[in-house]
Amino acid sequence: MPREAGIGAIVAAILLPPLGIFLVRGLGTEFWIGVVLTLLGWVPGVIFALVAILRPAPIARA
C-alpha cells in the first residue's frame, strides 16, 4: 500500500533514487523503471524518483 513521501524518502530519492521509490511505492513497476534510469544516469533516476514519490498515488477502483 503506497504511503506519503516523507523527508527521509525525498533525501533517499536524491542520494539513491530506487531506494526513495521503494520506501514510498514498494517493489512495483516504478521501482524497476527507477533502477534502469539510475543505471543509465544518476540525474534521470533522481528526476523520475522525485516525480514518482511526490505525485499522488493512483486511486484503486473497486
Rank of each mutant, 00 (worst) to 15 (best):
M1H: 11
M1G: 13
M1I: 09
M1T: 03
P2A: 13
P2V: 15
R3K: 11
R3F: 12
R3N: 04
R3A: 08
E4M: 09
A5F: 05
A5Q: 04
G6Y: 00
G6W: 05
G6T: 08
I7A: 15
I7D: 07
G8I: 08
G8L: 11
G8F: 07
A9W: 01
A9N: 08
A9S: 01
I10Y: 12
I10N: 05
V11R: 00
V11N: 04
V11D: 05
V11P: 05
A12E: 04
A13T: 00
I14C: 00
L15I: 15
L15Q: 03
L16V: 12
L16M: 08
L16N: 11
L16F: 14
L16H: 03
P17D: 15
P18D: 03
P18C: 10
P18W: 01
P18L: 11
L19W: 05
L19H: 08
L19C: 10
L19R: 14
G20T: 01
G20Y: 06
I21F: 00
F22A: 14
F22N: 14
L23I: 11
L23T: 08
L23D: 12
L23E: 06
L23K: 11
L23M: 15
V24F: 02
V24Y: 00
V24W: 00
V24P: 03
V24E: 00
R25M: 08
R25K: 10
R25N: 09
R25Q: 10
G26W: 10
L27P: 07
L27Q: 02
L27R: 07
G28S: 06
G28P: 06
G28F: 05
T29F: 03
T29L: 10
E30M: 06
E30T: 15
F31N: 03
F31S: 00
F31I: 00
W32G: 14
G34Y: 13
G34W: 14
G34R: 06
V35P: 13
V35L: 12
V35R: 01
V35E: 02
V36D: 14
V36L: 13
V36F: 15
V36N: 09
L37K: 04
T38P: 10
L39N: 15
L39G: 15
L40I: 12
L40Q: 15
L40E: 06
L40D: 13
G41F: 09
G41N: 14
G41V: 09
W42F: 08
W42Y: 13
V43K: 10
V43G: 12
V43S: 14
P44M: 08
P44G: 02
G45R: 06
V46K: 05
V46R: 01
I47F: 03
I47A: 03
A49W: 02
A49M: 07
A49R: 09
A49V: 04
L50N: 05
V51I: 01
V51C: 01
A52G: 09
A52F: 03
A52P: 00
A52L: 07
A52V: 07
A52D: 03
I53R: 01
I53H: 03
I53P: 01
R55C: 10
R55Y: 07
P56F: 13
P56K: 14
P56Q: 05
A57P: 10
A57W: 05
A57F: 07
A57L: 13
P58T: 08
P58D: 14
P58F: 12
P58E: 09
I59M: 12
A60Q: 13
A60R: 14
R61V: 15
A62S: 14
